[in-house]
Nucleic acid binder design. Structure first.
Lengths: 341, 341
DNA sequence: CAAAATAATTTACGCGCGTAAATTTTTGAT
DNA sequence: ATCAAAAATTTACGCGCGTAAATTATTTTG
């Protein structure tokens, strides 16, 4: 330990026997000083416990080491999980991730971007709200800050887009359902918050046509981000009105499926693929919770690691000076077979 | 809009027809300048789109407007929900909340606190990891930064503690279970991450004694924060070995209960309070997901709003100069009756 | 209406660090 | 060993703003 406190980099440089700018260079990139110099600094660091003032560091610097991560709703474990994944990759790469949630509110999303702008981040990983987003504001932000869009694309915005291949998702799981039983109905929100939902509906229609089955889309009412409750209420309606024309339901996403499962439970409708069950239910997303529904939910899962890695690498490449045209990367999902379908 | 960009507060003051320090005063507290002055600034603000440099603002200031919020695991919807609640209260009070997750890792918790320290926050709302936390590091941090501990208390640390009354929680729901059927067994982790678990076990033992029933605590193996999986595996074991001495199980928390429900589902054990069910299961926490289990989970819920408000108000009071002795505030929970028990 | 009290504003200085340019040291090729 | 090239280090300056102290404007009081 130390006897006297180090107040600033000047004092720390003195106790290290170096000049302040050399120490400054070390903190910006420890590899940029000679090994002997680095050792002296690190020895002093252990003896004196000093950390540079973040604010002073960043004020006179065009580009900080901060990476902004923005998700639409952090209370959704799917986004929490992918945010965690991104966060750890940023830390591993020597950046300081800062996490923001739009809380499902377009106005808040704009506020978050404003806050982020004044943070002068090296880059931003942004999952937009989608349909409800203020596209003008997003576009403008992307012009100011290197921004990579993930999860949900809204036009050709930012550096690039990285997400999942929703067409492949729905085609794949629809295939599975058709091959293993009655063809699925499609259970979705009438006005989905997320543009991915439209792709999934279209892909369902395509897949059903390819199989020569008549599609049946059940579009339920409901606004906002409380998907489970929307799915539960819509599920009750659909069950009461007999809207499901087959014994198989493919939900637009796992959270809707979770709500539908609850509705089935409340209506004593048995779910599963066994002989003694009356309905098969599948979801899409590989939601962290899907393993723990009753019955466990068959779903097609995002490749969390691949999406995160691709997104982060693409952003880092641009930060490190690479220039490349906007492109969209859509990664395939993995079918997860469980008991619900 | 504007024609020329404003680069700093000096330039902005010029176009406002004021001196820079007056403008600075406005940004620190709009109410501290004369109404006529405020109007001139706000008019200029609309015409010229200027935002003070955050880093320059904070570097020469002992106390920023930042509030740190730290939770053990943001992928747990319970913490995500309470973090969201705290975040919005901070914003409403004019602070800039910054969210951190320890991701269940004590080393990361310490790193987060170090990061936070260099952020010079006005205050911190900290939910510690609990048992695994580096208590020395926490104590030291609390000495440096005004820190309010919530959710899980670890000694008399920080300014105060705000959380739930775990004794009331378990007493209340145990009472309910005893009055409406067979007395409950208690399902918990042998080495819980969170100190609240010990209080709940003790409260269960007390309540059972008060009722004159023999307690039965089932302590399952498992480390870490994957409670659902731990509950599921432990549930399978307990069911196979017939460890539940009655038809009623009170789980130490909702996430364990969710895992146990999954185990029951996989073992075709019917859960509920009806005549045709074989086991009653209840949880504790009022986890956001508990509404959507099959059957929906009977639980005793944290008063999210009250905990958040009490925590935030206590912290703000200290920030605003109030001095008061350390105290522990534990709020009562609300029983939520659903179909599982 | 003048003087005192109070609030608003300005002057003047420094915070802790980044960074271009100048200088010194080290490295590598002869 | 010698000298040029490259790397490391130091010098010197400025960033954008907070804030105490000094000044000026406004309000209150007699």
């Amino acid at each position: 330990m130390t006897n006297k406190k180090i107040r600033n980099m000047e004092e720390f440089a003195t106790v290290s026997g170096l000049s302040r700018p050399t120490v400054s260079k070390y903190f910006n990139d420890p590899g940029s000083v000679r090994a002997s110099t680095r050792q002296r600094i690190e020895a002093a660091l252990e003896a004196h416990e000093y950390r540079p003032n973040i604010y002073a560091m960043n004020q006179n610097r065009k580009l900080t080491k901060t990476i902004g991560i923005v998700v639409p709703l952090l209370t959704d474990p799917y986004f929490a999980e992918i945010a965690r994944n991104l966060e750890q990759r940023c830390i591993a790469a020597g950046y300081r991730p800062t996490l923001f949630s739009s809380h499902g509110d377009p106005a808040l999303e704009v506020e978050v971007l404003d806050t982020l702008r004044s943070l002068k981040p090296a880059g931003v990983l942004l999952a937009p709200l989608g349909r409800a987003s203020d596209h003008i504001a997003l576009e403008k932000f992307c012009g100011d800050v290197p921004t990579l869009i993930f999860d949900s694309s809204v036009g050709e915005m930012g550096l690039s887009f990285v997400g999942s291949d929703n067409f492949q998702f729905t085609r794949h799981i629809t295939d599975y359902l058709c091959r293993t039983g009655e063809p699925p109905c499609f259970f979705e929100m009438k006005t989905p918050a997320n543009p991915n939902a439209h792709r999934r509906r279209q892909s369902y229609l395509n897949a059903m046509e390819a199989f020569g089955h008549a599609p049946n889309v059940i579009s339920i009412e409901g606004e906002g981000w409380g998907f489970e409750e929307i799915g539960r209420l819509g599920g009750h309606q659909a069950l009461e009105q007999g809207l499901f024309s087959t014994n198989t339901v493919l939900c637009s996403n796992d959270r809707l499926a979770i709500g539908l499962l609850t509705a089935c439970c409340e209506k004593k409708v048995t779910v599963g693929r066994g002989p003694d069950t009356s309905i098969r239910i599948a979801g899409q997303d590989g939601h962290p919770h899907s393993r723990y529904t009753c019955p466990p939910l068959t779903t097609i899962s995002h490749d969390y690691d691949a999406v995160s890695e691709t997104a982060v690498e693409a952003l880092f490449a641009v930060i490190d000076g690479a220039v490349s045209a906007w492109k969209s990367t859509r990664l395939e999902g993995r079918l997860i077979l469980r008991d619900s379908a």
